[in-house]
C-alpha cells in the first residue's frame, strides 16, 4: 500500500511538471484594479451637472496606454450607475475625455500628471492613477501596492472641491492624503 501510493503520487507530480503551460491572460492585478474602479463609481456621488443628459452614459476614461487588456470592459459590461450605462473610452489626449465622470491616468502619462490635472481642475471628474504621489499632487485616488495587495490613497479635499461626494466607507478604507503645499 505504502509503496504503491508513493509511486502514484510521484506520477501525479510528474504529470504536473510536464503538462503544457499556457500563456498568461489578463493580469490579476489589473482585474482587481478594474473592480476597484467599478466600486469607486458606486461609492462616489456625482453632481447632476456632471452628465450632459439624463440618458448620457457613465464614462470611464483611460488616458494613455491601457494596462487593463480588456479586464475593465469585462468588469463594467452590462452595468449601470444610477441608470447611466457604464462605458469605457480611451484616448492619449485628455481633451477627448472631458465628458467622462472618471479618468484613469495610466503610468504612461506619469510625466504629464501636472498638465493633466490642471486641464481637469474644478471639473466634476474623479481622477484615478497609479503614479507615485498622484494624490498629493492633486489627483483624486491613487493605487499603490502594499506587499501583494492593492491599496489606494485618497485625497478627499480635491474630490470634494470638484463637487463629488465620497462615501464615508470609501474614505475609511483608503489612506487619506492631503495636497502637497506646492500644488495649487
Amino acid at each position: 500500500m505504502s509503496k504503491r501510493s508513493s509511486i502514484a503520487s510521484w506520477f501525479y507530480i510528474l504529470l504536473l511538471v510536464v503538462a503544457p503551460m499556457n500563456a498568461p491572460a489578463q493580469s490579476k492585478e489589473y482585474q482587481i484594479k478594474a473592480a476597484f474602479l467599478f466600486n469607486f463609481a458606486q461609492f462616489v456621488n456625482w453632481p447632476s451637472g456632471a452628465f450632459p443628459g439624463t440618458n448620457a452614459p457613465f464614462c470611464i476614461g483611460v488616458l494613455g496606454d491601457d494596462p487593463f487588456s480588456g479586464a475593465l470592459d469585462a468588469t463594467i459590461q452590462g452595468e449601470t450607475i444610477d441608470n447611466h450605462k457604464i462605458i469605457v473610452e480611451r484616448s492619449q489626449n485628455v481633451a477627448d475625455l472631458k465628458n467622462c465622470q472618471m479618468i484613469f491616468v495610466s503610468k504612461s502619462e506619469r510625466k504629464h500628471v501636472a498638465e493633466i490635472l490642471s486641464a481637469l481642475d474644478s471639473k466634476p471628474i474623479l481622477t484615478v492613477s497609479e503614479v507615485d504621489g498622484f494624490a498629493e499632487r492633486g489627483g483624486g485616488i491613487n493605487f499603490y501596492l502594499a506587499g501583494t495587495k492593492v491599496r489606494f490613497e485618497i485625497n478627499p479635499g480635491v474630490a470634494q472641491s470638484d463637487g463629488l461626494k465620497i462615501s464615508a466607507q470609501l474614505l475609511s478604507l483608503g489612506k487619506i492624503v492631503q495636497s502637497a503645499k506646492e500644488d495649487k
Partner: peptide, 27 residues
C-alpha cells in the same frame, strides 16, 4: 481570467466588496 486562488476573473472581482478586493493577492 483570474486564478482560483482568489476567485476568478473580472466577473467575480466586480462582485466583491472593497474590503474583499483589498485582501486579494495580485500575484
Amino acid at each position: 481570467n483570474a486564478s482560483p486562488s482568489a476567485a476568478a476573473g473580472p466577473a467575480v472581482y466586480k462582485n466583491m466588496s472593497l474590503e474583499q478586493l483589498m485582501n486579494q493577492d495580485v500575484t
